[in-house]
Each structure stands twice: as structure tokens, then as C-alpha cells.
Simulated assay, not measured.
Amino acid sequence: MQSVHIFLALALLAFIFSYASAYDPSPLQDFCVAINNPFNAVFVNGKFCKNPNLTVANDFSFSGLNIPRNTGNQVGSNVTLLNVDQIPGVNTLAISLARIDYAANGGLNPPHIHPRASEILLVLEGNLYVGFVTSNPNRLISKVLNPGDVFVFPIGLIHFQFNIAKTNGVAIASLNSQNPGVITVANATFGTNPPINPDVLAKAFQLDEKVVENLQKKFGGSNN
């Protein structure tokens, strides 16, 4: 009987190893179209690597994340993302960091998606109403966070943060990709270039077509 257990354990380990070794690495951009002629290639999934002997401390550092950002925009928030473009040393390390500033009384980081990363958020200032929506059936998981609280947003799910405090808010977010990407739901729906046919959006959102056209004008995706 013991030999059977050992055999089953070895078989399970072999299966796990074969599965892990066959798993594709996560993509670092929206798409990477295959090309037969490498001389015509213009992009790779990630960045080319610097000679290790030529690296310096500045390749792994960034200064100024303590400086408040301007939140005087329509949504009342400002995201300072530190990914591989700002810190070259994170290339291949699957990490990035962001500072998010929120205006008082309603600063919003609007509903959005990170297609290539999960996110963990730490609140430093303000009181944030945060949440994410599960895949079908769509269930909202939300909570009010105070300074020192932490919340996790799973990869690929719509999520948001809304400052309900009378003072400005600040949060730090960590994401497990060097290039997590972001798709803001409203902008991606009504502000595409070229714009989505208003008939499609009118039917999808059960709206009058003129309302859709007005939203497209507001988000920069006007058909006119």
C-alpha cells in the first residue's frame, strides 16, 4: 500500500511539474503578433536587458513619490504609476507601484481594469469607498477603508476607489506586473478611436442613441 501512495505522489508531482513547465509567461502588452522575419520585428514581450556590468543604482530607484499630485480634473484623482518605463530595474521582476491622489469630497479613481495584474492597495490618507465586481453573476464586493487599511483587487476585474472624506486622500498600490495596463471602463466604451457604432452602445446600455452620442462627445469618441 505504501508503494502505491509513493507512486501516486510521484505521478502527481510529475503532473504538476509538466503543467508548470508548459505554462506560458503572462503577456506584458495587449498583443504580440508573431512574425517570421525577425528583421521586421519592432517590439518584444518586455524590454531588452542591459549588460549587468553596466547597471547603476539609478536603474533601480525613483525619487519624488512623496510629492502630492494635482487632482484638479473631472474625476478628482491622479495616478502616478512606476512601472518598467520609470524604473528600468523592474524589468522581468513582475512588479510595479503607484501613488494615487484623491481630491476631498468625492475624488474618484473611476471603474477600471488591469488586464495583466492583481492590485493591493494601502490607504495613507482619507477614507476610501472601494470595491470590485465579480465575473458573472456580477456581485459587488466593497468596503470603506481608513488610513492603514489594505484591500486587494483581483486581476482583470472592474474596480474603483472613491474618497468620501472631507480631506484629500492618498493611497499606495502595488501590482504584480511590470506593465499592468489599465482600461478605464467609461473611456474604453465611449472614447474609443475610431468610435463604436452608437447603435451598438444604445442597445447594449438600453439608452437613447442621442444619449450615447452625447457621451461619446464627452469622452472624445464622437462619430461627428
Rank of each mutant, 00 (worst) to 15 (best):
Q2Y: 07
L8Y: 15
A9T: 07
L10R: 14
S18W: 11
P27H: 09
L28I: 01
V33Y: 14
N36K: 15
N36Y: 14
N37W: 10
V42P: 03
V44E: 12
F48K: 13
C49M: 05
V56I: 13
N58E: 08
S63K: 14
S63V: 06
G64P: 05
L65Y: 04
N70F: 15
N70R: 14
G76I: 03
S77L: 08
N78K: 14
T80I: 09
L82F: 12
V90P: 04
I95F: 08
I95W: 07
R99N: 04
R99M: 06
I100C: 05
D101W: 11
A104P: 05
G107C: 04
L108H: 09
N109V: 00
P110Q: 11
P111K: 07
H112T: 01
H114V: 01
P115V: 02
R116I: 01
A117D: 01
E119L: 09
V123K: 12
G126E: 00
N127R: 14
F132S: 01
V133Y: 06
T134M: 11
S135M: 06
S135V: 09
I141F: 15
V144T: 10
L145H: 10
G148Q: 05
F151P: 03
F151H: 04
G156C: 04
G156L: 03
G156Q: 10
N163T: 01
T167K: 13
N168F: 08
G169W: 14
V170E: 00
A171C: 04
N176T: 01
N176A: 02
N179I: 00
P180Q: 03
I183M: 08
T184Q: 15
I196L: 15
N197W: 11
N197A: 11
A202R: 07
K203W: 04
A204Q: 14
A204M: 13
Q206T: 07
E209W: 06
V211E: 08
Q216V: 02
K218G: 01
F219I: 05
